[in-house]
Write a protein that binds this DNA or RNA. Sequence first.
DNA 1: ATGACTGACGATGTCAGA
Length: 262
Amino acid sequence: MLRVASWNVNSVRSRLDSVARWLEAASPDILLLQETKVEDGLFPAGEFESRGYRLELSGQKALNGVAIASRVPLYDVRRGLASGFLDDQKRLISCRCAGIRIVDAYVPNGGDPSLDRFLHKLEFMEQLLSDCLEMARSGPVLVCGDFNAAPGPDDVYDPEALDGSIGYHPEERRRLRSFLDSGFVDLLRRFVPRGKAYSWWDYRSGGFRKDRGMRLDHMLATAGLAEACRDFRIDREVRGWDRPSDHAPLVADFDIPAQETE
DNA sequence: ATGACTGACGATGTCAGA
């Protein structure tokens, strides 16, 4: 069994107690982090290494930053998009593990859909898909992370009111759907085909208390790998802990050996 | 409601997040 988790922690240093507590409770083999907000030299590595996790980092000061913590061997770590697009923003890291290519992505928020930043978001999503399809030519791929986009009406608290706003704009939904049209399976919807499901709740206005959320975080797997997925959950109770991230962790269990045999 | 809350930077405010 291989357990893979993904979590936008909104600053790994600010969230260190929660991350340590959650790691011990959930016990993932691999944890993909987004928005670590710290340069590599200042990453709190000891908290992970003391629990048996090795780290692969791609961080920067104050913004963005992704990391992979793993207690199983990783191979062939890559950083950034193949084209180098937005390379000054640390948003993408991937590795091979247990015979799978695992991708950890932090898609740009994009700001208001009227801004240039929004076009960069769409471009990032397109290039992410094309890189993932290239990876899928040589084996199973699991794309995880904060896509900053909700795919459908069951993935936001008020689809009519939010339509066209950041995270639920038709152009974002179209690019998210292109992953599914290309053969990637949305693991949450494999287990829960219908019904409201969220992974993010706004800090403001009691978003979590009122359960006004959006499903912005995803795990997308190539077909054979999705078939091997035995369980998937969004750990939403973590959003109710003290000083939480605004995102909850995702956890997927795969019926494949954690050690690569080749 | 161009609102709210949180974090980083590095300063007593501004930017970004989504």
